[in-house]
């Protein structure tokens, strides 16, 4: 037959096995098809640095990297990520690729409660890996899908701007 097993239709909430590479480590887990990636990361894999905010793609707190690009973990089901490479804020932190961004956020008080920070960092990391010399407007545009309810964005834009300049001075991205 052509690939579709009809017994699937009777097993709507039965878990399926999903395999992916998270933060460089191969992982397999059992998930219900309706479980979103953010829920799997937080509840099954206990990677709670990815935050669940609006759960509809508006706030940006759940951003992770999927095959190297920033995506909302609340806007995909875990089963869709089968076979993918996922990097969460924990992995990006451990690898050191965003260490300068984190230090600058800290130095400039670019966070208060910190709920939005993982998403801000994932997005800032993506921006700086694509655009070497972003203008402040580029930075604001890149962050247009990230809500911060504490700081008012100015310090966040400052921090990203400072890191972009520092990376150029030190001869390219770290």
């Amino acid at each position: 037959m052509i690939g579709f097993d009809e017994s699937l239709l009777d097993d709507a909430d039965e878990t399926v096995r999903v395999r992916f590479t998270i933060n460089g480590r191969k992982v397999a887990c059992e998930v219900a098809p309706r479980e979103t990636l953010v829920d799997c990361l937080r509840n099954v894999l206990e990677l709670t640095g990815t935050h669940a905010g609006c759960e509809m793609g508006a706030c940006g707190a759940c951003l992770v990297q999927l095959d190297g690009r920033a995506v909302h973990a609340c806007l995909m089901f875990t089963v869709q990520a089968d076979g993918a490479r996922i990097d969460t804020i924990e992995g990006l932190t451990e690898s050191g690729v965003i260490a300068d961004l984190q230090a600058e956020f800290h130095r400039r008080n670019a966070l208060q409660c910190g709920f939005c920070t993982p998403g801000m960092l994932v997005n800032a990391h993506e921006l700086l890996s694509q655009v070497t010399r972003p203008s402040r407007e580029d930075i604001r545009d890149a962050l247009s899908g990230n809500y911060c309810r504490c700081t008012g964005y100015e310090a966040i834009v400052d921090a990203i701007d400072a890191v972009a300049k520092a990376r150029i001075e030190s001869g390219g991205p770290t």
């Binding site: 690939g3 699937l8 097993d11 709507a12 909430d13 399926v16 098809p33 759960e55 089963v79 089968d82």
Partner: peptide, 12 residues
């Protein structure tokens, strides 16, 4: 805020 249960099929 959670989807109703469904089955998932990845078509090739």
């Amino acid at each position: 805020m959670k989807a109703r249960a469904f089955s998932y099929f990845r078509a090739a």
